[in-house]
Design a protein around this nucleic acid. Structure first.
Length: 878
DNA sequence: CCATGCACGC
DNA sequence: GACGTACGTGCATGGT
């Protein structure tokens, strides 16, 4: 017979935590769902990990409890429950009902007492009990049967406390938690305790005297005159506080343990509720994917599979889906084509498509208008097959991204659903995810593609209208859409990469790594897995007894900043840092890059994600060519493997100097900053002069380093904490630096204030070219989330405008290269730099053209400055 | 298969 | 006064 296991959940506490931990989500219909969602996530996690036989969720009842008879101020001064949360409680109860989980409350009592009472009952019956809450008060209940799961940060992270864990953490037994609270009080419940006694003092007293009563019995033995006075003065208050903190284990709970029985079952009612609340990820988790498909399938869909294509099928505009079998469109086959226009929706098997002259010339005709979902993918995939797609007039994914970059924009079904078109299956649902991925037969596939094509066609006017309302039509037509075609060319071109160079570097790295590894084992006196932070932590902090500087939620932190602090303590530490650095080079850059050299072209073909970042930057995957090492010489050598693709060509690299700070100067219209750039000053030195109030010749290198970090902070929107970390100073000092900076640049200060104010009014911020980022948290009552949103409001227009500018430069550069009939290829973009390969005899022209185009991509009130370099490899272009 | 810790770039 | 703090991608580990 399996042992019974009861989970007791502090309903109010979990709901509050969920509400404050998650952004204020809402459904299409405007129902707030963050607390419900968080509650559901926590619940599912607990049910999965604990597999209980019985579950109960306890709630507080009403405002007054028996504790108010003892102390009318109990829980006084609490903020009112926000209405956005209150309205979610009925739905949380509904959620529990549909999960088949009992919930319960008792007039005059708190959830605490219900839980305490039932925990005691279950304990007597020798059941296992787990209490889930965020409230440390509950630790008093821990005993051999009862374990407390304290929710740490977020919602689904818990820390389990057995009595020994309480002892370890507080140095006292669970039973003494009430004495602890009695002495130190609890501001959140407005329990007074003894003034001047905090956690440290309270624990010390309890270790010496056992209980509060014990303290007063031997009050003469208490050391410290002041402390003794305070204890005596507040004797009554201490006893009352202890009473308030004591959970009642004999509350009038009429519910029997058996009534809390729980059996895991996914009901259609639960699925229905999840759908109503738009909890798609949770539907996935309970395995209700098929039900989602069923929904789409319910609606009959008419389409035709074409075995022959005629002009009549190719009405303008037509939507076009080029389906690729591999998640990486540089590889894989084309699966088939979906097509839709006012004559109907069609599936074209790939053989039919590629053998049809009519279709091919339609694809390559600039004048026939195509609506696509991901034009870059289509263009590249067809380009690998010598078909040159032309005439893309609209890209659904791009448009959707510009309208709101925070939404899911890589899934046509998700976009469709947001616009109330519910007949598309998501690719994940249709093909299956990960290992479950399957390729379907033509019949099913045809319908899927025809549905997708139809959705693109129907989304066209809806998205066009939204772009128009947002004043983003020219951002779309003049910037992002043309850029997608430029990126397609760059990706298809790829960068020539020397396998030999990488392999040689790999061998040398292997030798060095083996040597360091042995060295470390010797110093450690044992072998272990150096790549395991867990094992390394045990060696450093247990075996070698080095001081613990920082902990992660799973153990000791062994990050570089921690190791640097420990470096003087043990000669092994610098070697560990070396090992990490070289190991990274070998695994990510040598082995990683070798894996992605295309066997046919000998080149690396990355993919730029144009619809991902919240700021408007690009990202690069498979491989990421935007984070190839440069700072440390050993890593920088990796760049020697990147070459031009022809003899006597060079790699030509051009980067914007201080583009973000120039953008800031322009947006903020800060006279100081604009002048500094007009005069060509070293901006970090200038910042140091102003912040530290010294003359140029008196700026020390330390001042300049600090000023540089402050500028870095402004550009990336880091907090005083972030700045303090990067400079190794206190948060207060960092805060003072930021203040001094803002006093020196009043235009910047005013901009920062104005942009936050505007964001609060509008709910979003914009860049120079009308890129948009919504900041729902900017009105949050949660300090953290609000502060983060405020920094984002200040930073996004800066970073996003810089992204606008280089994107504009790329589009113009592509046109200019064609105009000037150059054979130079643009290969990569790394946020503020462009990398080309060029024949030697075009270098002189590039030296003029590249800076010209980049510096004049947009007109600002500060000059943009571009620096360039070139050489036989990427390494040499410095 | 997923979360975690770590490290690389801007 | 606490909170947990730039954005991305990718690797190895260690749990399911």
């Amino acid at each position: 017979m399996l042992k019974n296991k009861l989970i007791l959940i502090d309903g109010n506490n979990v709901a509050f935590r969920a509400f404050f931990a998650l952004p204020l989500l809402n459904t299409d219909k405007g129902i707030y769902t963050n607390a419900i969602y968080g509650f559901a996530t926590m619940l599912m996690k607990i049910l999965e990990t604990e597999k209980p036989t019985h579950v109960l969720v306890a709630f507080d009842a009403g405002k007054k409890t028996f504790r108010h008879e003892t102390y009318t101020e109990y829980k006084g001064g609490r903020q009112k429950t926000p209405p956005e949360l209150s309205e979610q409680f009925p739905l949380i109860l509904e959620l529990l009902t549909k999960f088949g989980i009992k919930h319960y409350q008792v007039e005059n009592y708190e959830a605490d007492d219900i839980i305490g009472t039932l925990a005691a009952k279950a304990g007597q019956a020798t059941w296992d009990v787990k209490v889930v809450t965020g409230d440390k008060d509950f630790l008093q209940l821990a005993n051999d049967q009862v374990e407390i799961a304290l929710i740490r940060k977020g919602i689904s992270d818990v820390e389990n406390y057995k009595p020994s864990d309480v002892q370890e953490r507080y140095g006292i037994d669970p039973g003494r938690i009430i004495d602890l609270k009695g002495l130190m009080g609890d501001s959140s419940d407005n329990i007074p305790g003894v003034p001047g006694v905090g956690e440290k003092t309270a624990i010390k007293l309890l270790k010496q005297f056992g209980t509060i009563e014990g303290v007063y019995e031997s009050i003469d033995d208490v050391s410290g005159k002041k402390l003794k006075e305070k204890l005596i003065d507040h004797h009554e208050q201490a006893l009352m506080s202890k009473k308030l903190a004591t959970i009642d284990r004999e509350a009038p709970v009429t519910l029997s343990l058996e009534e809390c029985q729980y059996t895991f079952e996914v009901t259609s009612e639960l699925i229905h509720l999840f759908k109503e609340l738009e909890f798609h990820s949770l539907l996935d988790r309970i395995g209700a994917e098929e039900t989602i498909d069923q929904n789409a399938q319910d609606e009959a869909f008419e389409f035709e599979t074409l075995s022959e294509i005629t002009e009549d099928h190719l009405e303008s505009p037509s939507s076009l889906i080029v389906e690729v079998t591999d998640s990486n469109y540089h590889y894989g086959d084309i699966h088939g084509i979906g097509l839709s226009n006012k004559t109907g929706s069609y599936f074209i098997p790939i053989k039919t498509a590629l053998s049809s002259e009519v279709f091919r010339s339609w694809l390559e005709d600039e004048k026939t208008e195509k609506v696509v979902f991901d034009g870059k993918e289509d263009t590249v995939a067809l380009s690998w097959r010598e078909v040159h797609l032309k005439g893309i007039m609209f890209d659904i994914q791009l448009a959707s991204y510009l309208i709101d970059p925070s939404e899911t924009n890589d899934d046509l079904a998700a976009i469709s659903n947001r616009h109330n078109l519910s007949y598309v299956y998501s690719d994940d649902a249709f093909y299956g995810k990960g290992a479950k991925h399957r390729i379907s037969g033509d019949e099913e596939l045809g319908e899927h593609l025809a549905r997708k094509a139809r959705a693109c066609l129907e989304l066209l006017p809806l998205l066009q209208k939204k772009l128009d309302i947002n004043q983003q039509t020219s951002l779309f037509n003049e910037l992002e859409l043309p850029l997608s075609l430029v990126l397609a060319e760059m990706e298809r071109m790829g960068v020539k990469t020397s396998q030999d160079t990488l392999e040689q570097m790999g061998e040398e790295l292997s030798r060095k790594l083996t040597e360091i590894e042995h060295n470390i084992y010797e110093l450690a006196g044992t072998t272990f897995n150096l790549n395991s932070p867990k094992q390394l932590g045990e060696i450093l902090f247990e075996k070698l007894q080095l001081p613990v500087i920082k902990k992660t939620k799973t153990g000791y932190s062994t990050s570089a900043d921690v190791l640097e602090k420990l470096a003087p303590q043990h000669e092994m530490i610098p070697k560990l840092l070396d090992y990490r650095q070289l190991g990274k080079l070998k695994s990510t850059y040598i082995e990683g890059l070798l894996k992605v050299i295309h066997p046919k072209t000998g080149r690396i073909h990355t993919r730029f994600n144009q619809t991902l970042t919240q700021t408007g930057r690009l990202s690069s995957i498979d491989p990421n060519l935007q984070n190839i090492p440069i700072r440390l010489e050993e890593g920088r050598k990796i760049r020697k493997a990147f070459l031009p693709s022809k003899e006597d060509w060079v790699i030509f690299s051009a980067d914007y100097s201080q583009i973000e700070l120039r953008v800031l100067a322009h947006i903020a219209q800060d006279e100081q900053l604009i002048k500094a750039f007009e005069n060509g000053m070293d901006i970090h030195t200038k910042t140091a002069m102003d912040v530290f109030g010294v003359k140029e010749e008196d700026v020390t290198s330390l001042m300049r380093r600090h000023a540089k970090a402050v500028n870095f902070g402004i550009v990336y929107g880091i907090s005083d904490y972030g700045l303090s970390q990067s400079l190794g100073i206190t948060r207060k000092e960092a805060g003072q630096f930021i203040e001094a900076y803002l006093d020196s640049f009043p235009g910047v200060k005013k901009y920062m204030e104005d942009v936050v104010k505007k964001a609060k009014e509008d709910g979003f911020v914009t860049t120079l070219l009308q890129r948009r980022r919504y900041l729902p948290d900017i009105r949050s009552r949660n300090f953290n989330r609000r502060s983060f949103a405020e920094r984002t409001a200040m930073n996004t227009p800066i970073q996003g405008t810089a992204a606008d500018i280089i994107k504009q430069a790329m589009v113009q550069m592509s046109e200019r290269l064609a105009e000037e009939q150059l054979t130079t290829n643009m290969l990569l973009q790394v946020h503020d730099e462009l990398i080309f390969e060029a024949p030697e005899d075009e270098i002189d022209k590039l030296k003029r053209i590249v800076p010209d185009v980049m510096e004049n991509a947009v007109k600002l009130d500060v000059p943009l400055k571009v620096e360039y370099a070139y050489g036989p490899t990427w390494y040499d272009a410095k």
